[in-house]
Structure formats: structure tokens, C-alpha cells
Write a protein that binds this DNA or RNA. Structure first.
Lengths: 197, 197, 197, 197
DNA sequence: ACCTAATCGAGACGGTACGTCCAGTCTTCGT
DNA sequence: ACGAAGACTGGACGTACCGTCTCGATTAGGT
């Protein structure tokens, strides 16, 4: 289990660089973030950046996902009440993206994914796959316990919830006030249907 | 109704430029699109571009929306059957974004909106506002006719539908096959609820 | 006789750039001169530099030769007295290179010529050919008029004079005081020989 | 005379490094020589380079002077015949620099000296001082022995001879054929004068 | 037929970022 | 302490792009 020859990479730089990326992102945007700027702010040579990340997109992706893993919560609660659990998850994430700094980070990740055609899929899945699987599992458990109809498509539900949040993030500057109220309405509609019963 | 003095703008250039933008976008991505490249491909001087669009973002936006208006349909049908109408709208748009070329265009618009914080709102609203209003109107009409419960939030429904499509377009390369099937499931859940009743 | 299409190059930038190069060169050295620095000082984009010069070496060469053509004198006088004429030429150039600023410029040209193997010949000849031909012509005229022996090699004389100056430039920081006095001694030796006769 | 503690320096590396420097210099130029390249070619760590030489310039200087001391001869012969002795010295050095590989080495040393204003004096003197003192001594001895006129300036003679060689090496690619013939002509002129007697 | 005025293609311009490459230093291991 | 290997900061390299500008040439109205 020997170490490769030469000076090992400084692990502490990783965090410093990702932190610098987040700082820049919060006070400007993906387009305004430059590798030069990150290097300068992190007190790091540009070569160190390119040794660890191939380009701007994966660097931003890691910085954002790192923050999300650090501060955001991924788990879907399971109290037995599916409606309450989904609404709880929705509100939790809604509060996260209501924070302007967090919204900027997510928008930067979307920009990184959308800008370069090669990176779209890879980067996007990093964020969405764990979320989706948490939601799908929760719904599936509700199906298994008989709480919801067996012909319900858990993926469709998960997409609707995540899509609502994504749409919210992208149009956040406007009208984020009443967004929270709609989360309950969405879950109500999904749970009980809109029919005039 | 007099014409301003000087040589009038060549109207045919508009279409040529937007077409060139779409060509570039389809074979690469937003990041790879350069104003120089567009000018060269459209056989146009750069000054002509900046005379008509303030920067890259609105140019891309118009090119994409132009294609959307040309090939996609914005109207939500109203047959009286809300479920069928929403599902029809969803499938129509789903087929549009299933076309890889169209997906690339939409992703370019998302990139343009997400990259520069100043453009996020403006560009995003151009695409989402007409869609949202069409959906909200349709749902509201269903409320008025008593077809659905009066406490339903039309905006929450619209967000869920549009968000599902947005999420779809961003992760399109993977799993676009069974996506269409889920549209019915989503509408079912919204209409009838997931409750095991 | 038509002008090529597009905006023509700004001729006034040429002088501004060459001046900036000379400024940098006088307060530092060839190695310390950077294209970035020149561009910044001349208030010019880097692209403008590379549009006109392929690299640092030819840029420096033109800047130095431009100054030499502007301020230095190339002509060998012809008063009929070969010794006086050569000594005059030698002193004139000696005074030019005694000026520290001028010596720095010449050293920069030498560095430009010596650094890149491809440029050595080309750059060096630009400076030395006109000088050499002036000297050789003058000596040849003296041969023709019978003032000096017909078996004298004008090129050998020219090389000795120019080489003395070149050596002087390269070791100038030390001992430039008594250099002037030696010019007379060299011409004396060449004219009259060192023999004890 | 005690040995310092720790592992002693590997003396064989010195030659290997200098050899690697000369190899690189002969197949490219001073500008194309990098410390990384030298370290790689000599199978040596960069730290080892900087432990022994302060920077690129003195390393190149030692490599070139090492070759000069190895293959060229510095001594001015003293057969009693000053003209023959100077011509012999001139031809010997002329043949050395006529070898393209040697010319490249000398040009690299000139580049090292001319590029950084701090190194100009130091490096240049390393090569020229021993040469000059040999020539000056030889001429002074001729003065003492009465073979030449007492008012002859030995430094002026030495400068003319060394300058001729320096000029030759800098413009070597062109016209190195008849250069050798001119050495005799130069010595003739210096010894006997150019006057038509 | 001239004149004014805005358009057009072409391409130079200043500025900024890109991604690569070096110089010179530092840090790991092994000798 | 010395050795190879290689990560580190700092900064220059040469290229590409953005958005502006400056040419000559064109294309309309108004005189």
C-alpha cells in the first residue's frame, strides 16, 4: 500500500477552491465566474485548478454539490403519512432555494449543465438521481403499504415535485413569496385529486 | 406613418440569422456558440447582429422561441375534459422536446437564462409566462364550470406540469423512452389523487 | 488600386507600440519584457500585437532598429582622410552606445537574435548589413584612390570595427570610461601597423 | 578538513547535467531550453539543479564554458612572431565557432548574458576576461621586447580580435566560408598598417 | 441628378478569459 | 544531507471571444 512518488496533492486546497467558487458564484453568476478569478481568490495557481478539474463546468458542479451535501437535506421523511412527508420534503427544499445564495448556486449548476452539451447529462444526474430515488422509494413504500393506489407511477410523482422546485429556482427572482403556499396545494392535488368529488 | 430616413433594414436577414443560430446550437451548444461564428455562418457583419440584439442571450432566446412558435404549439386545448386536455398538452410538448434538436435548443435557452444573473428572469419569463397562463386559464375554467374542486390552485398544477417537462429536457439523453407514459400517470394522479380509496 | 475590405489598420498604433517596447526595454531588459506588459503600456489589445508581429523577437528588433534609424547615424563620413573618417564613425557609435538607454536597446536586440535559433541570422543582419556596407564602401574607395594598399581586405577592417563596438556593448557595465580612447588606438594600429618601424 | 554531515553530492551528476544542457542547446536554442527539460533529460530532480546553480543563466554559462574548456584552447601561443601567434589564435577559435554545434553554444551564452540585465556583466566576463588577458599579455610582451611600437594599445588590439570573432558567431549562418581568410588579412592590417607605404 | 442618412459586409480595435507552459520553491519518499 | 518525483504559486504565452469602431459600398427617401 505504498504512496506514489513525488509530493502528494494538498487535500486542504480542495475545500479552499470549492469555497472560493461558491463565494464568487454567490456574488455574481456562472458567466461571471472565471478560472483566473477563482485561482486568485483561492490563492492557488491555475495549474492546480486544471490538475483537478478539466474545466469550469465540473468544478462548479462539485462546488455546488459539495454545498448541497453539506447544508441541504436529501432524505425524504417517513412518518407513515405520505402527504405530510412529501410536503415536508418540498418545504424543506423550498426554503433552501428561497435563500438567494442557494438559488444562485443551483442556477450556476443548471448553467454548467446546460452550457456544454457533453456535461448536461452527467452533471444533472449527479444532483437529481439521489433526490429522485429518495422520493420514488418513499412513494413505492406507500404503494406497498396500501396507502395509495397500486397503479400510481412513483417516477411521475417524483418528477412533478422535483420539476416544480427546478422551475421555482429558475424563475425565483419573481414571486417567490407565495411559492411555499403552493407546495401544500400541489401535494393536496396529488393526494386527493382535483375532481369535484 | 412615414418611413425613417436612410436605408431600411433588410428583413430577410432576421430569419437567416436566427436560422444560423439554430444550426450552430443543434450541432454544438450554447457555450460553443460565438457571435463571430453566427455572423460568419449567416454571411452577416457583426454590427448587424448587435444592431438587432443587445447580446448573445436575447439573440439565442429569440432564435429558440422562434423555432418553438414555428413548430411547437402553445395553446392548451379545451374539449371540456380537463384530464384529456392537460394530457394532450403534455404529450404535444413532450414530443417536441423528445426531438434531440429541439431539446438542444431548449437547453441553450436555459443556459442563456441561467448563466447571466441579469438575464435569468427576462428570458425565462418569455418562455414560461405564455405557457403558464394558458394552463392556468384552462384549469381556472374547469374550476368555474365546477368540474374540479374550487380550492384547487391552478398555479400549482401548472408548475407541476411545466416543471416535469423542464426536468425532462435537462436530463433528456437518459430515459426519454418511457417518459411519455408517465405523462398520463401524472395527469391521472392530479385528477384522481393517489389515495387508495 | 482598391483598398481591402474591412476597417484598415491604425497606422499610429505602430509607433505607439514600438515606443512602449523601448520604454520597457530601457527600464528593464529583454527577459523582463512581456507581450502583456507592452500591450498594457501601449493601451492596445494583445491581438493587435500578434496581428503585426509574430513574436517577441521581431517586435523588439523593429523597436530597436526604429530607434537606431531615428537617432543613430549610419553614414561613414568621407573627408578623404580614411583614418579620421573611421575614427569619427567609431566615436559617433561609441557615444551612442555609451548612453545606457541605447546600450540596453542594443543588448535587447542581441538577446532577441541569440535567443531563438531561427531569428539569429535574420535579425542580426538587419542591423549589421547596412553598417558593414557603409564601412566596406568607404575602405574600398580608399583602395581605389590609392590611399591604402590594394591587398587590404575591407571586410576584415569592417568586422574589426563593428566587432569592437559589439564587444563594447556587451561588456558595457564595466569600464566604458576609457573605451573611447581606445578607438583612436585601434584606428592607428590599423592604419599605421603596430610594427616598431 | 572535515566532510559535512549527510549524504555527499553525487559528483557524476554534474557532468551529466551539463551534457544534457549542451544536448538541448545544440538541437534548439536558449529560449527553448527549460529547466524541466534539462531535469528530465538528465534523469535528475529539479531540486538538484537549483541546489547547484542559482538559475538558468549560470547553468547555461557553466555548460558552455565547460565545453569551451574541453574542446577549445584558451592560450595565446608565443613563438616570438606576434603576427603568426595572433593569427594562430584567431584561426583556432575561428574553427571552433565554425562548428555549428559550438556556434549554438556560444550564442546561447550570449543570449543568457544579454537577456537579463543582471547577468550581462557576470556571464560575459567569465568568457571574455581570460581571453582578453591572454591576448593583452601577449601583445604587451611584444611591446616589451621591442617588436612593436610602445604606443600600441594592447586592449584595443584584443578587442578588435575578440570582437571580430563575436560578430562572426552572431552572424555565422551566412558567409562563414571566407571568414577564415579574413583573419590573416586582419592581422596583416594590424601588424603592417593599411597605408600604401 | 444630387444629397442625406441609415444599412450592409468585412475586419481591426481594447479588454478579458481561456488553457498551457515555465521558473523557482516546497514536500513527500527512499538512499 | 542528498537523491528522484512531482505538486505548488505566480505569471507569461498565444488564441478566442465579446461588444465597439471604422472603413467602402449600397439603398432608400427627399430635394
Amino acid at each position: 500500500m505504498s504512496q506514489p512518488p513525488g509530493r502528494p496533492r494538498d487535500a486542504s486546497l480542495h475545500a479552499a477552491i470549492l469555497g472560493a467558487v461558491r463565494e464568487v458564484l454567490m456574488e455574481s453568476s456562472y458567466a461571471d465566474l472565471s478560472m483566473d478569478g477563482v485561482a486568485a481568490r483561492a490563492q492557488v495557481g491555475k495549474k492546480t485548478l486544471y490538475r483537478r478539474w478539466a474545466s469550469k463546468a465540473p468544478l462548479v458542479a462539485e462546488a455546488v454539490l459539495d454545498a448541497y451535501g453539506r447544508g441541504g437535506s436529501f432524505d425524504v421523511p417517513d412518518t407513515g403519512d405520505l402527504g405530510a412527508d412529501l410536503q415536508c420534503w418540498l418545504i424543506e427544499h423550498g426554503e433552501f432555494i428561497a435563500e438567494p445564495a442557494n438559488a444562485k448556486l443551483i442556477r450556476a449548476l443548471v448553467a454548467a449543465a446546460a452550457a456544454n452539451s457533453g456535461d448536461t447529462e452527467a452533471l444533472y444526474e449527479q444532483l437529481s438521481v439521489p433526490q429522485r430515488s429518495g422520493l420514488v422509494d418513499r412513494v413505492r413504500r406507500a404503494v406497498d403499504s396500501g396507502a395509495v393506489r397500486p397503479d400510481v407511477d412513483p417516477d411521475a410523482i417524483a418528477n412533478a415535485l422535483m420539476g416544480t422546485l427546478l422551475l421555482q429556482v429558475m424563475s425565483s427572482p419573481v414571486r417567490s413569496d407565495d411559492a411555499a403556499g403552493r407546495y401544500g396545494a400541489l401535494v393536496d392535488a396529488l393526494l386527493s385529486g382535483v375532481g369535484s368529488a
